[in-house]
């Protein structure tokens, strides 16, 4: 079963990027790809989100920000971005593209295809 499950994930374009323990709680790590960095965040309650590592304001690396709740504060000028939607927190406007993630048995899988809806891919 396990093997079959994994095969299915891989078939859908999922990439294994590490384990939950590799990312500090309320922290983030970066997955480097030829198309740019993807920030993978872990919240206090072990939810994992992935966003393009580029702030909608002036491109700051969101992975370097302070994570709180399900938001991150950009390190350059302190915009806040929702981890679950990629949208900037009001009243700021803009977004960072979301990337699908799934966790199976503590292993994190990431899809490199950004979700639709945000021009900042």
């Amino acid at each position: 079963m396990q093997v079959a499950g994994k095969a299915k994930t891989l078939a859908a374009g999922w990439i294994e990027v590490g384990t939950l323990e590799d990312i500090p709680r309320l922290g983030a790590r970066v997955v480097q790809t030829p198309d740019g960095d993807i920030a993978v965040f872990r919240t206090a309650d072990d939810q994992v989100f992935a966003l393009r590592d580029r702030c909608p304001h002036k491109g700051g690396p969101l992975s370097q920000g302070i994570v709180h709740g399900t938001r991150v504060a950009c390190p350059l000028h302190d915009w806040k971005v929702h981890l679950d939607s990629g949208l900037a927190v009001e009243p700021d406007e803009g977004c960072a593209a979301r990337f699908p993630v799934r966790i199976e048995g503590g292993t994190i899988y990431l899809s490199l295809a950004p979700e639709e809806g945000c021009p900042n891919k």
Binding site: I15, P24, R29, V30, V31, Q32, P34, L112
Partner: peptide, 11 residues
């Protein structure tokens, strides 16, 4: 160490 290394490099 984790602070200074990427989680993974792809491609």
């Amino acid at each position: 160490r984790h602070e200074f290394t990427p989680l993974k490099r792809v491609g």
